[in-house]
Design a protein around this nucleic acid. Structure first.
Lengths: 248, 248
DNA sequence: ATAGAACCTTGACCCAAATCAAAGAGAGCA
DNA sequence: TGCTCTCTTTGATTTGGGTCAAGGTTCTAT
C-alpha cells in the first residue's frame, strides 16, 4: 500500500508524498525532482519506536499509512501524548538537530522521509516552502493550544467526545467526504493511548465510552469500530462547537 | 520606560525592538530602516483587551514592558490560558488574518507593533527573517507541548512549583543573571490568572502556595513578592528537571 | 481616617476521577 | 479445542481538587 491508495493525487504534484499538508501545492518540476532525490521510505511495526526524545533526528517525514504518536513522560512514568500523526501529517523540525519527543508507531507505519540537510537547503532557497512550513507549524501550535483547553478545563466525558469527534472528522476528510450525520470509523488507538492523549486513566476512558454507548450517542461493534448516528449530538457533548483541531 | 530600559541593546541592532526573540540578530542597515518605517507603539491599561479571538489582527508585535496573556474559553465561561507574554516575547502570525485567541493586558502594557502587510513582505523577501520566525514558532510549539504534559499529568502542587520555577527563571534571564540558589521576584499574575494557566481553581492555587510557604520552599512578602531560598528544592517539587519551557 | 472594591486565604463538605481489584473477550497459536 | 496474552470492562473504594461560604488584606478614592 502506498500513499496513493490513501490520498488522492494532486494533479499538479502527483509524486510528492507530502503534498497535502506540506510543501507541494505550488511545487514546480525542478522542486519535485529535488524532493525525489532525497526521499526514502521507512516502515515500522506496531509498537515500535520511531525515535526517542533527545536522539538525533536527521530527517523530516510525512506519514503515508498508519498511526504514530508524539509523547512526553515524567521521570516516574506518567506520560502525556502531545500529538497524533495520521496519514498525510508531517513531522520534523527544520533547523533542529534533536527530537524533542518520543515518536512511536501505534499501528504498522509507513513514512516517507526526506534527508534533513538537503531538505533544509531546499527550504532556504525556495520561499514558498519556508512559508508553507511556517503555516503548518502555526496550525500545529493552534491545535496544541486547543488541546490545552481540553486538558485544563474539560470533563472526562467532554474529553472523550472531543476525541471521537476529531477522529471522526479526520477519517471523513481522508475519505473525502464531510458530513454531519451518520459517521462510521475505526478508533486508531487503544484505551490506554486515548487516556494518555486526554490526561485520564484507561479505566475512566472505558467507563465514559460505555456511558456514551449506553446513551446511544455512539454505537460500538467490537472494541474499535464506532458508529456515530448523529454527529451534532456527539459534538454537543464535547463542550464546544469546535470544528476539530488536534495536535499535529 | 522603553524597551531599552528593560532589555540590553544588541550592538549590531540597537534600534530593532524585536531583536531578542525575533528577526533581528542578523539584521542589516537596510532591514532596520524598513522595520523602523512600519513600526509604532501601542499601550494598554491593566485589564484591557488587546484583541478578541476572531477579530482581524493586522499587526505583529513585541512586548516592550508589562504582561499579556493569551486565553481560550468555552461557552460556559471556563477559561484556559494558553500563553503568557513577557517583555521581549513576540506575538503575531504572518499569513493569518484573524486572531485565534483573546489577548489581554494583565498589567499596564507597552507593545511595539509592526503593520502586518509590510512585515510579511519583508519576511518573504528576507530569508533569515522567515527562518527566524519558523524557529520562534517551533519554540512556542515545544513550550505549548510541555504545558500539555503539565496540564494532563501533574498534580496541583507540581503545577504551582513548575509555574514558580518558570517565572523565576524568566525573571533571572531578564535581569541577565542565571542562578540556581536564592531567587527573588514578583509574581506577575493574580491567583485567578495562575489558576487559568494551570487548569486549577483559584482556591487550590492559594492553598498550594500556602503549603509551599509553610514548608519553607518559598517565602512570601505580601501576596506577590516571592523569595525562593533554594531553587533546586523548588524544581524538585515541579515533578521533573525541566529547564523551564512556557507557552510563549 | 474611612468606605468600598478587588484580591486573597481558610474551612467544611462533596464529587469526579483515580486507584485497586477482578473478571470477560478476542486474537493468535499449538 | 483449548491456552495464553493483551486489551477491555466493571465494581468497590479512596482521594485530590472543586465548590460553597465566610472572613481577612491591601489599595484606592473620597
Amino acid at each position: 500500500m502506498t500513499f496513493e491508495d490513501i490520498l488522492p493525487a494532486s494533479p499538479s504534484c502527483a509524486d510528492c508524498p507530502i503534498r497535502h499538508r506540506a510543501v507541494c501545492s505550488r511545487c514546480d518540476e525542478r522542486e519535485l525532482g529535488q524532493l525525489e532525490e532525497i526521499k526514502y521510505y521507512r516502515s515500522f511495526e506496531a509498537g515500535q519506536m520511531v525515535i526517542w526524545s533527545g536522539d538525533k533526528m536527521d530527517f523530516v517525514a510525512s506519514v503515508v499509512s498508519g498511526i504514530a504518536t508524539l509523547t512526553q513522560t515524567l521521570e516516574d512514568g506518567r506520560t502525556q501524548m502531545v500529538g497524533l500523526l495520521l496519514p498525510s501529517d508531517f513531522v520534523g523540525r527544520p533547523g533542529r538537530e534533536f527530537a524533542p519527543y518520543n515518536i512511536s508507531a501505534t499501528t504498522d507505519l509507513l513514512m516517507c522521509c526526506f534527508r534533513k540537510k538537503p531538505f533544509e537547503e531546499m527550504m532556504f532557497s525556495t520561499p514558498h516552502i519556508a512559508q508553507r512550513l511556517l503555516e503548518m507549524t502555526l496550525d500545529e501550535l493552534d491545535s496544541a493550544r486547543e488541546w490545552m483547553l481540553l486538558l485544563g478545563r474539560k470533563t472526562a466525558r467532554e474529553k472523550i467526545a472531543s476525541l471521537l469527534a476529531i477522529v471522526a472528522q479526520r477519517d471523513a476528510a481522508v475519505k473525502l467526504r464531510t458530513q454531519r450525520g451518520r459517521m462510521i470509523f475505526d478508533l486508531p488507538l487503544t484505551r490506554e493511548a486515548m487516556a494518555d492523549y486526554l490526561g485520564l486513566t484507561l479505566e475512566t476512558v472505558s467507563r465514559q465510552i460505555s456511558a456514551l454507548k449506553r446513551e446511544g450517542i455512539i454505537e460500538l461493534e467490537g472494541k474499535r469500530h464506532v458508529t456515530v448516528p448523529d454527529f451534532d449530538r456527539l459534538l454537543n457533548e464535547a463542550g464546544d462547537d469546535a470544528d476539530g483541531g488536534l495536535p499535529t
